[in-house]
């Protein structure tokens, strides 16, 4: 999957209202952020530094653990999902995980949702209407997030409003 890691981190910085600093992709595709002579290596590490700068504190250790889990999921699996089979497997898994949830962590939107939204934007935009219905829980979660203009920023809105039945139903004579 062609995920632009730098763009994703810049958008996270913008959402959190922190300086993005200089973000580059180092060797082995590991992102490196330099700000005020301080360097941070690694996707999850960079986002945790940004959260600290934004004074975004979690009180529940389990919530922090779940955020960490989703950030690692995003960089190890979502960003590397290449080819239709991998993408399909990932969407199937996410659909299952989101079947009983509004947000990934707890009952509120966290940076985990925001990062996954940025990473999935291209994939969701390229899905057929049938696939959007097939991955209904991912679609519902994604559509909910993109309604927030602070999250969406300059990303295009992915259309989920078409009457799928017209496309899916066989023509009767």
């Amino acid at each position: 999957m062609n995920v632009n890691i730098i763009k994703c981190l810049m958008q996270v910085a913008s959402y959190l209202k922190v300086q993005p600093g200089k973000i580059q992709i180092g060797s082995n595709l590991i992102p490196v952020r330099t700000i005020n002579d301080s360097t941070t290596k690694g996707f999850v590490s960079i986002i945790f530094e940004m959260l600290k700068e934004a004074k975004c504190n979690f009180t529940n250790p389990l919530d922090i653990a779940e955020v960490r889990q989703w950030l690692e999921y995003c960089i190890v699996y979502t960003a590397r999902a290449d080819g239709s089979q991998n993408i399909e497997n990932m969407l199937k898994e996410l659909n299952n995980l989101l079947s009983t949830k509004t947000y990934l962590v707890s009952y509120k939107m966290t940076v985990a949702d925001i990062v996954l939204y940025y990473m999935l934007h291209n994939v969701m935009g390229n899905l057929s209407y049938l696939d959007k219905e097939k991955y209904l829980h991912v679609s519902r979660w994604f559509d909910n997030l993109q309604q927030n203009s602070l999250v969406r920023q300059k990303n295009t809105i992915v259309d989920f409003k078409t009457n799928y039945l017209i496309v899916a139903a066989p023509v009767k004579h």
């Binding site: 595709l29 690694g42 250790p61 653990a65």
Partner: peptide
């Protein structure tokens, strides 16, 4: 993530710990 939850680092080590966790999981 589960290991980190079970044995969290001392706060002053947090950045370095995060970088090594990133390194281990990505490379």
């Amino acid at each position: 993530t589960a290991a980190h939850y079970l044995f969290p680092p001392k706060s002053f080590d947090e950045k370095q710990v995060n970088e090594w966790l990133d390194w281990e999981s990505s490379l």
